[in-house]
Design a protein around this nucleic acid. Structure first.
Length: 594
RNA sequence: GGUGGCAUAGCUCAGCUGGAUAGAGCACCUGCCUUCUAAGCAGGCGGUCCUAGGUUCGAAUCCUAGUGCCAUCACCA
């Protein structure tokens, strides 16, 4: 039982004893910094049960607590707020309890029930861009947070490897490629394929322009441009299993996968299972048929199959075309079911997909529920806001995207420039330096994106570089590095850093740090419940800010009293461990020096 | 037009189930490096919490209406 629960119990006892009434709940909040105390009980809500003056009531309860509760050493009442001071012993005991707990804050896996987290899921016709970066970072982080909260997690993605988009790149490569390969050009495979996607669009636009100048209506030209018709023909050939087309498709997709692998590795994300649309796009039809039998769906006269969701406040939605082919929804139904078949322990899924698809997922989840799958009750669309540029939306075809590889490289460069200027790493080898710059640059980028509430839109201005000061990744990494420096020095000085010392007094800054450490476990839980890495980021920032204040105001290694000195080193160490754990949940590494 | 999301300091963002004088960072201004890393610390400046009603002892937070921005509503993905 934590101190707050214990106090709630005691406050109820106090009210029963003094005022002879039962209090259902007690409301607490952390005491504001400008008042004395650690925890504050709010008196106002009690006035419904206890008639009287809030200050007087607060005073009586406060006195009761001080007399009856060992941990309560003092109190004061301001307006309707009872500020309670908790003893140093309580906080010191708490610290002693977590000091050697390696996985402090983490819950060990509590059941065999698994949850599947899908993220990334790119198309294979172009490189990853900033929008994918947000998706990847969010999905990865939420998966890690869920694990830390005690869930068994599978990370997965569905790779959109088939369809008209990849045919466009293939066709353009056939026409204009002159047999280029990643090897012959030295380009990353995804970049090469992406170039042909752009080339297709250029040729397509040129054809439209030519047709329009010959008097063809623009709408008609957009639909009948020869190159587009040819791409559509190619897709039909692919579906028919045409050897040449399928061969080219395999080759070009492999180029893309090789390129993606490098990007994922640099980004530091990974997957437990991969699903390919080319394997799943035919799935789902049987279940539509089954649902049709059971009256979940209905058939229109032309043979197309629909679901009526007007009772749920949505529209009618098609689930199978009149020619019997699958639409996206059909496929998503099939894929979800397939995943549970492959992994019977999966009892829920998280889909990391942009908020432009909110409607799609509402419908998908409803359909799966109506089909009667038990796990359909535990599907969650991790919907996030778009990443926009000052110029508006990013568009691959128009080349207005922020490329993921370039962005990461730029961040590394910036980190290098700042580090060189500060010049604290003269004795590092070139290799060590490069490794470090990457850690810092990526830390800045990841933190910048993850600290924002997922559902909010991010406006990214490439002209203004991501900050390295203030509420940033490098600031937090810097604090970690500082603590490591202290620990290295302390090792040299002390023999018995692990001894547990009996202290009685605590510096105000030490107490604040301990309070902040205490919040870590519940923060992980909250972040898991809300699928929000931003909560972890904000917590870590608060912890680090508190530590820096402590660091700058209180001497650690310079402390004369041995016991205090050892305690402070241990406290600093614990703070650095929590920073590392928390950043691990965000997929951010921490450096020993910087 | 229907539906959903968002709106807090010049800029970027916090603000948990309603609670004290709405908090950080950047930018701007003052101090602090012969003692543990100044990517730091201490402080200053800066707000009609989009607007108007309502619920409440109490509203940035909940409800209603409106305004603005974004998304979505296809036998597209």
């Amino acid at each position: 039982m934590n101190i707050q629960e214990a106090l709630a119990q005691k406050v109820k006892e106090a009210v029963t004893s003094i005022f002879k009434v039962e209090l259902p709940t007690v409301e607490f909040q952390p005491t504001r910094k400008d008042f004395a105390g650690d925890i504050t009980a709010v008196i106002f809500p009690m006035l419904r049960y206890v008639k009287g003056n809030p200050v007087q009531i607060g005073g009586q309860i406060g006195q009761f607590l001080k007399d009856e509760v060992e941990e309560v050493t003092d109190f004061n009442v301001v307006k309707g707020f009872l500020n309670i001071t908790i003893s140093n012993e309580y906080y010191l005991d708490f610290f002693e309890g977590i000091r050697n707990q390696q996985d402090f804050g983490f819950v060990s896996q509590s059941s065999e029930e698994a949850i599947m987290v899908e993220y990334s899921s790119p198309n294979t016709n172009k490189p990853l861009h900033l929008g994918h970066v947000r998706n990847n970072l969010l999905g990865y982080s939420v998966a890690e947070i869920l694990k830390a909260s005690g869930k068994k997690v599978y990370k997965t993605q569905i790779i959109n490897d088939r369809g008209i988009h990849i045919c466009k790149s293939m066709l353009a490569w056939q026409r204009f490629g002159n047999g280029e390969t990643p090897e012959s050009t030295g380009l990353k495979g995804d970049k090469l394929v992406g170039n042909y996607y752009v080339a297709f669009d250029k040729a397509y636009k040129a054809e439209i322009a030519a047709m329009v100048s010959n008097g063809v209506d623009e709408k008609v030209a957009e639909k009948e441009a020869p190159i587009l018709l040819e791409a559509q023909e190619m897709l039909r050939k692919w579906e028919a299993g045409d050897e040449e087309v399928v061969g080219l498709w395999k080759t070009m997709n492999q180029w893309v996968y090789d390129g993606f692998e490098i990007t994922y590795k640099n980004m530091g994300v990974d997957f437990d299972q991969l699903y390919y649309e080319s394997n799943t796009y035919l799935l789902g039809k049987d279940f539509v048929e089954d649902g049709l039998q059971r009256g979940v769906f209905y058939k229109k006269e032309d043979g197309s199959v629909w679901i009526d969701l007007t009772e749920e406040g949505l529209d009618e939605k098609i689930v199978l075309r009149s020619d019997g082919t699958a639409v996206y929804m059909t496929q998503d139904i099939g894929t979800a079911i397939q995943r549970v078949k492959d992994n019977p322990d999966v009892k829920g899924m998280v889909y990391t997909v942009g908020n432009e698809q909110d409607y799609h997922f509402k419908v998908l989840f409803l359909i799966l529920q109506k089909l009667g799958f038990s796990w359909a009750e535990k599907l969650y669309h991790l919907s996030y806001g778009m990443v926009d540029l000052p110029s508006g939306k990013m568009k691959s075809r128009e080349g207005t995207v922020v490329d993921a590889d370039e962005l990461m490289e730029d961040m590394t460069q910036t980190a290098a420039a700042i580090s060189e200027e500060l010049g604290k790493l003269e004795d590092y080898s070139e290799e060590e330096k490069q490794e470090l710059y990457k850690v810092i640059g990526l830390g800045a980028l990841k933190y910048y994106i993850l600290k924002v509430d997922p559902k909010k839109r991010i406006l990214f201005n490439p002209e203004e570089s991501v900050d390295f000061q203030g509420n940033t990744g490098p600031f937090i990494q810097y604090t970690y590095a500082r603590i490591q420096s202290i620990l290295r020095k302390a090792e040299e000085l002390e023999q018995d850093l692990d001894s547990s010392q009996k202290l009685t007094d605590l510096h105000e800054k030490e107490k604040e740090l301990l309070k902040q450490l205490q919040l870590f476990p519940e923060t992980i839980q909250l972040a898991a419940d809300n699928y929000s890495p931003a909560l972890i980021a904000n917590y870590t920032y608060d912890l680090v800010k508190e530590f820096n204040s402590f660091y700058q105001n209180v001497s650690i290694l310079g402390e004369q009293d041995q016991n205090k000195k050892i305690f402070r080193v241990q406290l600093a160490k614990k703070v650095s461990e929590v920073i590392k754990s928390a950043f691990g949940l965000l997929g951010i590494q921490v450096p020993d020096r910087m």
